[in-house]
Design a protein around this nucleic acid. Sequence first.
DNA 1: CAAGTAAGGTAACGTACCGTACCCGTCAAG
DNA 2: CTTGACGGGTACGGTACGTTACCTTACTTG
Lengths: 226, 226
Amino acid sequence: MAVAARTRSKRSTRENRRTAILEAAAQVFFEQGYAATSIDAIIERIGGSKRTIYNEFGSKEGIFTALVTENADAAVAALSVERFAARNLSEVLLEFGRRLLAIYMSPAVIGIYRSIMTEAPRFPKLAKAFYDKGPGRASDRLADVLEDAKARGEIQIGDCHLAADHFVGMLRDNLHLRVILGLRPPPSAAEAEAAVASTVNIFLYGIHGAKLPQRSKRGAQSGAMS
Amino acid sequence: MAVAARTRSKRSTRENRRTAILEAAAQVFFEQGYAATSIDAIIERIGGSKRTIYNEFGSKEGIFTALVTENADAAVAALSVERFAARNLSEVLLEFGRRLLAIYMSPAVIGIYRSIMTEAPRFPKLAKAFYDKGPGRASDRLADVLEDAKARGEIQIGDCHLAADHFVGMLRDNLHLRVILGLRPPPSAAEAEAAVASTVNIFLYGIHGAKLPQRSKRGAQSGAMS
DNA sequence: CAAGTAAGGTAACGTACCGTACCCGTCAAG
DNA sequence: CTTGACGGGTACGGTACGTTACCTTACTTG
C-alpha cells in the first residue's frame, strides 16, 4: 500500500521508517512495559511487517535500547545545551527547576521511568546510562552551581551533592509519582510553576523563613503562561 | 467440605503454604516484573504444583494483587500505628523521616515500586491503593503536622500539602532511585541518618540558614546506630 | 529497458506460558 | 480398614510471541 511515497530518496524513507517505528514502539513499550510488548503490537500501529524492524534493530532488546537511549538523549538535551546566565541563585534555581520539571513530566521521560524500573535488572547498562545522563547529570550540574555559591559564601551547606539530590527529589515528588502511576494528568503550566516556586522557596529558605508563595494551588485562574 | 472445625495442622500448613508462595512470588515478581514472571518460576522456588497456587489465589493477577497489597500494608504499618509524641517540629520531622526512609528502602517497597510502575495501567486500582496507603498517606499525615505548626505560628508556609509532598520527595530522591535501578545497595544506617538529617535541615531552614550538618558523607565511621 | 539487489511481506517454526485435567499418594474421619 | 477429600506431579490445550526462511516487489544501475 505504501507505494506512493517510495520514489523519494531511499535514505529519507528509511529514516522516516525508523522514526515511525520508534514512535510506535514508544507508545507500546512505555505503556505496556517491555515484557508485555509484542513486536506485532508495534507493527499493528504503523503497518508493515516485522521484517522491517528486525532489519533495522536486530532484536526486541535492540529496539528497546535504541528507544530509551535516543529519547533520553533528546530529553536531556534541553538541560545541557545552554549555560545558565546566572545572575542570582534564586533565578538560577527557578530556571533550572522549570526545565527539569518539564523534562520529568514529558511523556518520553515518564515512559522511560515506567519501563526502566522493572527492566533495570535485565538492562543494567541501560539503567546506568539513563541515570547518568538524566537525574545524575542534573544533580551534578546543580551541585556545581551550589559549590560556586558556597565558595562565594552565599549559602551555608555541608554536602552540595546531597543538597542537589534533595532538590531534584523535591521536584520529582509525589506529583511526579502520581503522574507515573496514571492517577492524575501532567501538571498544567500554572501548577508546574507553583511547584517549582515552592520547591525553590523551601530549598533556599526552608519552611521557617519561607517567603509566602503566591498560593496558586486550586485556583488555576491566576497562572500566567511561561 | 463445609467442615467448620478443620484440624489444627492442616490449617497451619495451609497458612504456611500461602506465605511460602507469597515469599517466592515476591522474589520473582519484584525482580523480573509481572509480565516476565511465570507461575512455573514461582513453583520452582518452593516445589509443589501450580494447582496449589490456583486453588489459593485463582489467577496470576490474584497472586500479584495479594502480594502487593499485603506487602504494602505490612510496610506502611510502621508509619501508622504509633502517634508521634510531638515535642518540637524538628524532632518530629527527624523521626518521621527516619521511619519513612526505612520503609522506602525496604526490599518489599523497593520491589513494589519496581513492579507497580510498569503495571499501573494494567492494575489501576492496585496503583491507586498503593499510592493512597503509601506515599499519599505519608504526605497527608505530614501535612497535618505542618498545619498544626502553621496554626501555632511556628512556620511560614503557603500550601502545607505541597510542602509535605516536597519533604517526602526529598527523602525519596536520587538515592532511592539509584537503589531501585540497582545502581547501588540500600544505604547504611549512617548514610540513612545523614540523608534524613540533611533533608530535615533543608526543609526547616533552607540552604541559606541551614545549620551545618555533621558532614557524615563518605566517612561512615562516625555514624552511631540510632 | 533489462538485470541485479535490497527491502518489505507471508507464513511458519520452535518455544513458552496460563490455566486445567487427570492420576497418584497422604491423611483425617468413621 | 475403608472412604473421601486435598495437595503434588505430569501432561495437555490453546494461544501468543520472538525470530527466521522464503518469496515478492520496487528501486537502482547500466
